[in-house]
């Protein structure tokens, strides 16, 4: 569709070329580098690196962390979006800003706050030690830091979507005699399912890939509290570059799957004609 108000094709091509060059350098090249470095020494060393016991336990821990923290934030995100978009109450915009707060906090600080609370010298440190409970340098601490970091993801996707959808359909369902749960289940959920899935994807990608916050609370205990990103760091610092990039390439693969799924979802949104973004 040519518009009367646009640039000459030549200028367009120049601008497109500059944009693509920039993206190639800053986005595509690093991605290629991950896979390139991982397979530098061939497929054998790659496979050895990702099947090493420490790597496997890091993979397991990463999956466990995501399996705990994503559902928690899904429940929170859906509840917060329902309260925020279906009701009118003062203080709503403050609540939205507070939900976004973890976005503006450094991941390192996100880890630090839990160390201050639950670390050996932390506020609850003595009490935890007395009861033989371990949070910092253990799985619960990693979960806490991950939940904090991924806190806004689901709510952020759902709030604009549900705001736009309004509450007419829910009111119609209620006026036809549906209960609250029936209304949510049969009317709201089908309307938000793709947005919800999208939020879950982003939340999951971040939960599996979080580095800074987890690094502070994990204690880097090999085979116990090492997640995949931490394992990448350890291997890298030990100059096991092939190993580091091999594990990193698994994470990069996860990122690619996330991007593809996200693109497919957006395509579906358009298919159904519901506007987004």
């Amino acid at each position: 569709m040519r518009r009367s108000t646009t640039e000459s094709r030549a200028l367009q091509i120049i601008l497109i070329a500059v944009a693509l060059l920039f993206l190639a350098f800053f986005l595509a090249l690093p991605l290629v580098a991950v896979f390139g470095e991982a397979l530098k020494a061939g497929f054998g060393p790659f496979l050895d690196a990702v099947t090493a016991p420490d790597a496997l336990s890091a993979i397991k821990l990463t999956l466990l962390i995501a399996a705990i923290s994503v559902p928690l934030n899904v429940v929170f995100g859906v509840a917060a979006s329902w309260a925020i978009t279906k009701f009118k109450f003062p203080g709503k915009s403050l609540l939205i800003s507070l939900i976004d707060l973890p976005f503006s906090v450094s991941p390192v600080v996100s880890g630090l706050i839990f160390v201050l609370l639950f670390g050996a010298n932390g506020w609850f440190g003595t009490w935890l030690a007395e009861h033989d409970l371990k949070i910092i340098f253990a799985v619960p601490g990693i979960v806490l830091a991950t939940v904090f970091i991924t806190f806004p993801f689901v709510a952020r996707e759902l709030i604009p979507l549900m705001m736009e959808q309004g509450k007419d359909e829910e009111e119609a369902a209620i006026s036809l005699g549906a209960t609250g749960w029936q209304t949510f289940r049969h009317v709201t959920l089908p309307n938000i399912r793709w947005g919800l899935l999208y939020g879950v994807l982003l939340c999951n990608a971040r939960a599996m890939g979080e580095f800074g916050a987890v690094s502070v609370v994990s204690g880097h205990i090999r085979g116990e509290t090492n997640t995949m990103p931490l394992h990448v760091e350890i291997l890298y610092n030990e100059y096991d570059f092939v190993g580091a990039f091999a594990v990193a390439s698994l994470l990069a693969g996860l990122a690619l799957v996330t991007l593809v799924a996200k693109t497919v979802l957006e395509w579906r949104f358009n298919l159904h004609g519901s506007a987004r973004h």
């Binding site: 359909e169 119609a172 209620i174 006026s175 549906a178 209960t179 309307n191 159904h272």
Partner: peptide, 18 residues
């Protein structure tokens, strides 16, 4: 509203799209 048994036709119809 559910107990009142009223039929309500919304301005934008509020049909369930899915």
């Amino acid at each position: 509203v559910g107990e009142r048994q009223v039929g309500f036709v919304f301005q934008q119809y509020a049909l369930f799209k899915h």
